[in-house]
Design a protein around this nucleic acid. Structure first.
Lengths: 161, 161
DNA sequence: ATTACTGCAAAGCATTTGCAAATGC
DNA sequence: GCATTTGCAAATGCTTTGCAGTAAT
C-alpha cells in the first residue's frame, strides 16, 4: 500500500495544512475498506475541508469549488461530505433529520433528548448537573445563555428480560 | 379582558387537555401584546399542538389539519407554530439554521458549541463533567450512546474593559 | 370600515437522485 | 475492460411568500 498520499497520481495541492496531509491516509484507508475509489474529486473536497478551520455549509464548499481548475460538482461535494462523515473525519453539526421538530413545553419545562437511531424514538431527560456545568462554562466564556440543548444519538437497547 | 378562553366566540373543542385550557390564555395574552388577532385557525392549531404529547413535525400537523372541519392551511400552520415558538409555548427541536454545518474533526476531538445569536460566532468547548453525566444518564435508560451534542444559544457579552 | 389573517399556489432552497459520460483500478 | 464515480439537470421535500379574498376588531 502506498503510504504517502502524494503518490496517488494526483498533483500536489499547494498551501495544504499539516492536518490534511496527516488525515488523508485515513480517508484512503476508509475508502479502501469500502472498496471505494480514490478519486481526484474526493481529494479536492477533502483538501478544501481541511483547509478550513471553521464551520461551513455544504453549499459554501460547492460555491468555492464551482469555478476554477478545482471544479467539483454539487452532487459530488455532498456525496464526499457524507463519506467523510461516515469515516469520522467530519462532524455534521445539524444532522440526522434535517427538518424541525416541535413539542409544546407548557407545564413541561425544558428537557433534553436521547434519540434512538433505529426506531426514531425520543427519550426525554433533564439533569441539573449538566445545566449547572453549562452555566459555569458560559460564565467562563462571558456568554449570556438563553437556553441550551443536549441531544444524545445512539440506540435503545431492548430491556425486556 | 375575558379570562376564560371558552368565551372567545369559538366553539369548544372537545377532548381537550387540561394543559391546553390552561395555556390558551397565555397565547391570547401574547397575541394581544403584539396587537395580533385571536383567530379560529390559531385556536385550532393551538389545540392540536397541545393534544399531542410527543414530538411532531410541522408537516404532521398540516396533514392532520388538511381535511375535515378543522381545516387549516399549510402556511397558517407554519405561521402559527412560529408564533407559538415566539410565545415560548412550543420548543423547536432543530431550530436556528435549518441546514447542516460541517467541520473537520481530525486532531480536534469532539467538542460542543456556544453559538452567539448576534454575530453567529461559534465558541467551542469540551467538558468531562458533562460527558460523564451523559454516560450515566444513558446507562440509566439502557441507551447505547453513539455520540452526543451540546449546543448553547445566547449572546457573547463584550469582554473589552 | 379597517387591517390583519387565511388559503392558495407558486417560489425558494438545501439536498438527493437518475443517467450517460468519464475515470479509477 | 469493467465498475464505480462524476457532472448535469431535474426532482424532492420542507418551508416561505405574494396576493386576493375573508374574518377579526
Amino acid at each position: 500500500m502506498s503510504s504517502n498520499s502524494k503518490q496517488n497520481g494526483l498533483e500536489a495541492h499547494q498551501g495544504q495544512d499539516t492536518t490534511a496531509e496527516e488525515a488523508w491516509p485515513m480517508f484512503v484507508e476508509f475508502l479502501k475498506s469500502k472498496a471505494s475509489r480514490i478519486t481526484q474529486a474526493r481529494r479536492i473536497v477533502f483538501d478544501r475541508v481541511f483547509a478550513r478551520h471553521d464551520h461551513f455549509r455544504a453549499d459554501d464548499l460547492t460555491a468555492e469549488l464551482s469555478s476554477g481548475s478545482d471544479y467539483v460538482s454539487r452532487g459530488t461535494v455532498y456525496r464526499t461530505l457524507d463519506l467523510m462523515t461516515e469515516a469520522g473525519l467530519v462532524q455534521k453539526i445539524r444532522d440526522q433529520d434535517v427538518h424541525a421538530h416541535y413539542e409544546h413545553i407548557y407545564g413541561h419545562g425544558r428537557h433534553h433528548h436521547l434519540i434512538c437511531e433505529n426506531t426514531g424514538e425520543f427519550i426525554e431527560f433533564s439533569n441539573k448537573v449538566i445545566s449547572d456545568e453549562i452555566d459555569c462554562i458560559c460564565k467562563k466564556h462571558h456568554f449570556n445563555q438563553r437556553f441550551h440543548r443536549v441531544v444524545v444519538f445512539g440506540t435503545l437497547t431492548d430491556t425486556k428480560a
